[in-house]
Design a protein around this nucleic acid. Structure first.
Lengths: 140, 140
DNA sequence: TCTGTAATTGCAAATAGTTCGCATGTGCAA
DNA sequence: TTGCACATGCGAACTATTTGCAATTACAGA
């Protein structure tokens, strides 16, 4: 792997490919998101970042990532946004008791976006989110 | 309509049927929600309530309504919760530009909740939410 | 490789939505 | 009609997120 400058090389490349500067903070944040096992709140990202970036900066970076389409923001926890690396289309199951979030493969027919567009007053529908709520095994 | 004590009679009945006191504030809030054309933030409910109830109280009432299953809370606007009268199962289309929210009839097959439960680590799935994102006609 | 410059960051202060404590008020069962 | 547990209003406290601004830094071009 000649030329690899570390585990963050691909994150830096992704950033530059998206037209944004590959700063130390952004590279660290994107690496964390890529390695994450699920959606995380900024608080958790900051903790995992071990001081590599400031919280306010994290929010700014995440907004930029969102705009670039490399990160998704979801609002499942009450009052706190969660962020996850974009790429694989999937949905979530949320435990009402402990808040645990699990990725879910199940999805709606691909044609549904178009069907909704036609039936609604919308000019275009380019994304959908599907969430399931219930109780995980640990919460009986 | 003998015996009807006003337009809020049914709201009061709904409250008592749910085992909660039919206070002036609760009756007013539930009437507003029932008459609403879509999900509303607490701010809008308070404004429509014209001083009939306090904002802090509105949050408390809405939490009680949620627990009783007569109101749904959704998190579509960034940072502010929206509330709507429960009853008809439906979903939402959200305009990324102006934030407009429209009800949508489209849904997933009824069997999907069970399928997700079986495939996931969840003991039970009793609800799902489906949101569509795009641009409404007014936002081109 | 060095440099200029515009983009980015850190810190601290400001917002905004939501929640809480507590004294007062009130629905409703008896 | 009355008692009292439950509800409400007010203000203060919280929490997540955003913003202003000066200092720092990535990286295109020399």
């Amino acid at each position: 792997m000649a030329g690899m400058r570390g585990i963050d090389a691909s994150s830096a490349d992704t950033l530059r490919a998206a037209g944004m500067r590959a700063t130390r903070q952004r590279t660290a944040l994107l690496s964390l998101l890529t390695a994450a096992e699920g959606p995380l709140p900024v608080e958790a990202l900051a903790k995992r970042g071990k001081g590599a970036f400031d919280t306010a900066t994290a929010y700014r970076m995440l907004e930029a990532f969102q705009t670039a389409g490399i990160v998704h923001r979801i609002e499942l926890a009450q009052g706190r946004a969660l962020f996850e690396r974009a790429g694989t289309h999937h949905h979530h199951a949320v435990c009402r008791s402990c808040g645990r979030i699990e990725d879910v493969e199940a999805c709606v027919p691909a044609s549904i976006d178009e069907r909704v567009r036609a039936a609604s007053g919308f000019a275009r529908i380019d994304e959908h989110a599907l969430e399931f709520f219930g109780l995980c095994r640990s919460c009986v």
